[in-house]
């Protein structure tokens, strides 16, 4: 259980936006992020739009080339010169995207979509592909005759199930879920989440779950990390995280969540009121990037960048308030 399956160390991914003779401007989408995921964990990566959470996922998958840093999967550094991933990495790590409508090819039917990973990774001999597809569809509780349907003729929740089925085709160990339920209704979301939890148990998977929904993370994750402007603010095991949220940004996020019971209301930090907006990642504020919205900011926050402080065994906060 304690074996690290994924280690990300000081990862930086920048995007060039314009280049003039004297200076180049970059969007620092991911700016020095380190974290690790243990085998069997469900790690929640939470942040507002533009905080760089999807960029981390895409960088791990090899869709973007990092500027700096290491990504270690199963003891191997997977970043190489041409940013290609090995076949075994591609087999072991899969991703499910946010919008199932645009991540499934509308000109192919479900059978064609699911047979590609089976062929590429040679999971089963060619003659047995349809059998295997029926088996995988059964895993996500879709009927076998679903394979003759086109993605355009099925509903949003079912499309997402097909995306999950596609990710399962290569028998992966690690799945990155990039906001898999954010475009769905709550009743459908509950079904998909239950399915994912069942697969997590049965297939012994590890998840990196990217989302902006902190109440969902409370219920499914084992560890939560908060991102803000390309940097990680706080990482903690779920219980600890919701009992004692420490970073002012985490407190602001928690206090902004609309809840439906008194019991939950009591858990929200009271004194924090949401103000301001996330600044542009091109001009990240000096010092602590959150100081423009923070109610507790002092002089040091405007000038000096905070470092990660360890407050308890697994609880890390990047804030000057917790400096020893």
């Amino acid at each position: 259980m304690d074996k690290h399956i994924l280690d990300v160390k000081n990862l930086k991914t920048y995007f060039l936006i314009n280049k003039s003779r004297d200076k180049a401007n970059y969007v620092r989408a991911v700016d020095g992020v380190s974290f690790s995921v243990k085998e069997g964990e469900i790690m929640g990566l939470v942040g507002e739009s533009g905080s760089g959470k999807s960029t981390i996922a895409y960088t791990i998958m090899g869709m973007y080339k990092p500027v700096e840093g290491e990504i270690i999967f199963n003891g191997e550094n997977i970043i190489n010169k041409n940013n290609r991933r090995s076949m075994s990495f591609k087999k072991n790590v899969q991703i499910v995207f946010q919008d199932p409508g645009s991540s499934l090819n509308p000109y192919q039917d479900v059978r064609q979509i699911l047979s590609l990973p089976l062929k590429v990774h040679k999971i089963v001999p060619r003659g047995k592909i349809e059998e295997k597809i029926a088996e995988i569809l059964e895993m996500v509780e879709l009927p076998a005759d679903f394979m003759y349907k086109s993605p355009t003729s099925i509903g949003g929740g079912e499309k997402q199930l097909v995306s999950i089925a596609r990710a399962l085709c290569s028998n992966p160990k690690f799945i990155i879920l990039d906001e898999p339920t954010s475009s769905l209704d709550v009743s459908i979301q509950a079904k998909i989440i239950n399915m994912l939890l069942k697969l997590h148990r049965e297939q012994k998977l590890t998840y990196l779950f990217i989302t902006h929904d902190l109440s969902l993370m409370r219920n499914i994750s084992t560890k939560v990390a908060i991102m803000y402007l390309g940097k990680m603010c706080e990482v903690a095991p779920t219980e600890d995280f919701y009992k004692t949220p420490m970073h002012p940004y985490t407190q602001m996020l928690l206090s902004s969540i609309p809840v439906i019971s008194e019991e939950e209301e009591a858990l929200k930090p009271k004194k924090v009121v949401s103000t301001g907006e996330i600044p542009s990642p091109v001009n990240v504020p000096k010092g602590c990037s959150f100081h423009t919205r923070c109610m507790l900011s002092t002089d040091i926050c405007r000038s000096e960048e905070p470092i990660m402080h360890q407050v308890s065994e697994d609880h890390f906060v990047r804030c000057h308030l917790y400096k020893k």
């Binding site: 709550v186 009743s187 979301q189 902190l214 109440s215 409370r218 919701y242 019991e263 939950e264």
Partner: peptide
């Protein structure tokens, strides 16, 4: 019931 609760 479907709404995930902050209280777990």
């Amino acid at each position: 019931d479907c709404v995930p609760r902050l209280s777990g």
